[in-house]
Amino acid sequence: MTEPPMLTPAEAFELLLAGNQRFVAGELQHPNQDAARRAETAAGQRPFAVLFGCSDSRLAAEIIFDRGLGDLFVVRTAGHVAGSEVLGTIEYGVSVLDCPLVVVLGHDSCGAVAATRAALVDGLGTTGYVRDVIERVTPSVLAARAAGLTEDDDFIAEHVRQTVDLLLDRSRVLADGVATGRTAVVGLSYRLADGSARRLAARGLPAEAVAAGPGA
């Protein structure tokens, strides 16, 4: 496979946002989704971003960012909760695959956040390993409540921000990448109704790249 040029974190972020803007406008290009790309990537991969998102069936990363084979290294869990396996997978994308960008992707109407709020407010219990998901979302919900937030979107936004902070706090690979300018970690929130992804947090991007992206 011919090695593509290395992108800076800002270039990778711009490329990702451009795809989402095409998706919102209904002007999809479907890049890298043909037989030629399949053959090109058979021998190896060089994705330009790690996409760590919620497992919600409406957040198919390659569709909502209009990308194709070999473009995104995708990790998804309910409520984008991160355990050691998730952290290791994200670090693999950064340290082995040289992804310059890590994106945490949340969304409105998140069931994991709603279930956590219900468990804390109403004492509604869960069974099995769903309880583990709720336990991992709980610090975000408590932080939002402590800040006086009441709206669903505010709780979801706080959970995205908390996840960005958690990745940087727990992963030396990501923290060092941001500190040296090799990596950026960005939090986005996806709107189900219109398909847009708005920025909630950005670590490691230059000021002009942050200003250019869609903000909250």
Rank of each mutant, 00 (worst) to 15 (best):
P100D: 06
E91Q: 08
V94E: 12
V121T: 15
A12R: 08
L167W: 03
L17S: 11
E208H: 12
L87R: 01
E14S: 14
A49T: 06
R67C: 13
C110F: 08
R67G: 14
V74P: 09
T41C: 09
P100M: 05
R203M: 03
A193Q: 11
S196A: 11
R182E: 13
G148E: 05
G177S: 05
E158W: 00
L166N: 06
L28R: 14
G83A: 13
E158A: 03
E62N: 15
S189N: 04
L28K: 13
L105A: 12
R67V: 01
R145E: 15
T180S: 13
D71V: 07
E85I: 13
A82F: 07
I134D: 02
S57L: 10
L16A: 14
A42G: 09
T41W: 02
R46N: 12
V185Y: 02
L166A: 14
V74R: 05
P5Y: 05
V74Y: 01
S171W: 08
G204F: 07
V121C: 00
V178K: 09
L15P: 04
V94P: 13
E27N: 14
L120S: 05
L120Q: 14
P206A: 06
I90Q: 06
D154F: 00
E158M: 01
V103M: 09
A175R: 15
S57P: 07
V50E: 02
T41V: 15
H30T: 12
